[in-house]
Design a protein around this nucleic acid. Structure first.
Length: 465
RNA sequence: GCGAUCGUAGCUCAGUUGGUUAGAGCGCCGGUUUGUGGUACCGGAGGUCGGGGGUUCGAGACCCCUCGAUCGCCCCA
């Protein structure tokens, strides 16, 4: 690499090969499952006014206080590259009058940006899939959303992650609990870790999550959210768990699970790899693969009327790391390699490749074309070897001109597609070119005999397609 | 923002206590062999050793700074 070649921005990735296939597999599976649950696709801008995120996510959160890519545009407005989806979706819901569609189930995916120190499963530009149900206050919405998340993970082949579930109660429950936690921890402040002392002011709920051994002794006796839940909040959570049981979604109660963003109420959840599992290994310390909750307070923070909503987001890169090897490579198989051993015949190869790639009407109706690679560069004697390394379903060698019946057209076939759709499609293409003459020898050809014998007997002019 | 490890050809790496023109395998390109074929052999291209500064007669190796990667902490998806 030359010294003056620009480098990629820190924390960005250029994804290629198996990783790119796994990435696509995650997105495609999400798109398929989301349709089954009737979530409607939406597209969102990648940047918003800074206040969209600052007001909704919470000024004191790490995301807003130190991780946003904010800049002033030429008009002097402060804009920010989206660090998450939910705030922008809420803004769109309010500014576009989507209330008329409530309850609204929407899904999207795309890049997000956070100025963080990159590490395994964490990037500055990363990608999420996202699902939200807006304008639905009933616990059934939470169940629906979680059932979809669970099914998605299963269909991705990820079976060693478990739903960790908690409730933060309604606004009042949450505040009462928060107050009690502050009081409790303040009494022992001097004995807490530095991090937790800081959290005490900013986000006391997070102390419960602390991994520091100095904090551990105090966690067990800390006030429990269950003691602060209103009857409504308790009934709500009960309805959610009943629904999950009915839907067959496995879950565990995680009393210390709190989500970092200010807007969460009631249900909070994360799908986390089981301890010691392959997925836990693959993800390292970035344990959460999909997370979300209910954010009934968010719309108000953006100046809208109170609107109940639930949603989740999952990191595509993290999911892609957990997808089994080969799962994303189903479409990568090459149907056919066409080897050109004589540069004079390149035109015939191009013609044939185009025909094979076109979609067509066959025995079973319309179907997509076949994937084809033309091998026509480099040392001639090594072209066949090159083709075999592509691991195609079959190899066609052209060393004569297909087009002209005066010339000897030599087309050799090697592969396992004799009886399959590829073989019959190939024969029908060639039969058109040779007015059906080839059909007498089609079978021999597909067994590997040269096609030259079959078409030398044809003296008719065949029209160019 | 903090800590640790690392940074040599396209890729994976080697490079002995600092000492002459920096190596291998794979890949790529060409040739020979084979001749219905994923073989073997020969040859070739490709590196200002992440970047900058310093120590030294001499630095890919040592020191400092910087950029980046990886793994933790924090936070999160």
């Amino acid at each position: 690499m030359s010294k003056n070649t620009p480098k990629a921005i820190r924390g960005t990735q250029d994804i290629f090969g198996a990783e790119a296939e796994a990435f696509a597999f995650v997105v495609e599976t999400f798109e398929r499952v989301r349709r089954l649950y009737r979530f409607r696709r939406i597209e969102m801008p990648v940047f918003e006014k800074t206040e969209v995120f600052a007001r909704s996510i919470g000024e004191t959160t790490d995301i807003v206080s130190k991780e946003m890519y904010s800049f002033e545009d030429r008009g002097g407005d402060s804009l920010t590259l989206r660090p998450e989806f939910t705030a922008g979706i809420a803004r769109a819901y309010l500014t576009n009058g989507w209330q008329q569609h409530a309850p609204l189930k929407v899904a999207t995916h795309g890049p997000l940006f956070r100025y963080e120190r990159p590490q395994k499963g964490r990037y500055r530009q990363f990608h999420q899939i996202d699902a939200e149900i807006i304008g639905a206050a009933e616990p059934q919405a939470d169940v629906e959303l979680l059932a979809m998340a669970d099914q998605l993970l299963k269909e991705l082949g990820i079976n060693d992650v478990t739903l960790h579930l908690n409730t933060l109660g309604d606004g009042e429950s949450r505040e009462a609990w928060r107050g009690a936690l502050i009081e409790y921890f303040r009494a022992v402040k001097g004995q807490l870790s530095e991090d937790s002392q800081e959290r005490l002011e900013k986000n006391p709920l997070r102390i419960l999550d602390s991994k520091d051994r100095r904090d551990k002794p105090f966690l067990a006796d800390a006030p429990k959210i269950d003691d602060f839940l209103s009857d409504e909040a308790r009934a709500f959570f009960q309805a959610v768990t009943d629904g999950l049981d009915a839907a067959g979604v496995k879950w565990v109660r995680a009393e210390s699970l709190v989500r970092g963003l200010d807007y969460y109420r009631h249900t909070a959840f994360e799908f986390i790899p089981d301890e010691g599992s392959a997925s836990a290994d693959a993800l390292g310390s970035q344990s959460t693969v999909l997370g979300g909750g209910r954010y009934d307070g968010l719309m108000e923070s953006l100046g809208g009327t109170p609107t109940p909503a639930v949603g989740w987001a999952a990191g595509i890169e993290r999911l892609a790391m957990l997808v089994g090897v080969g799962a994303g490579q189903l479409d990568e198989r090459l149907d056919c390699a066409i080897v050109v051993e004589d540069d004079e015949v390149i035109g015939s190869a191009v013609w044939l490749a185009r025909k094979l790639r076109e979609k067509f009407e066959g025995e079973y109706g319309m179907r997509h074309g076949f994937s084809v690679e033309i091998v026509s560069s480099g040392s001639r004697r090594k072209r066949f070897d090159k083709a075999t390394k592509l691991e195609p379903g079959c190899i066609l060698v052209i060393d004569g001109i297909i087009d002209s019946d005066a010339a000897v057209a030599n087309l050799r076939f090697k592969g396992e597609a004799q009886g399959g759709p590829f073989g019959s499609r190939l024969i029908s293409i060639l039969a058109q070119r040779y007015d059906g003459k080839i059909l007498e020898r089609a079978n021999d050809f597909l067994q590997g005999a040269p096609l030259a014998l079959a078409i030398q007997s044809s003296r008719q002019t065949s029209p160019r397609t």
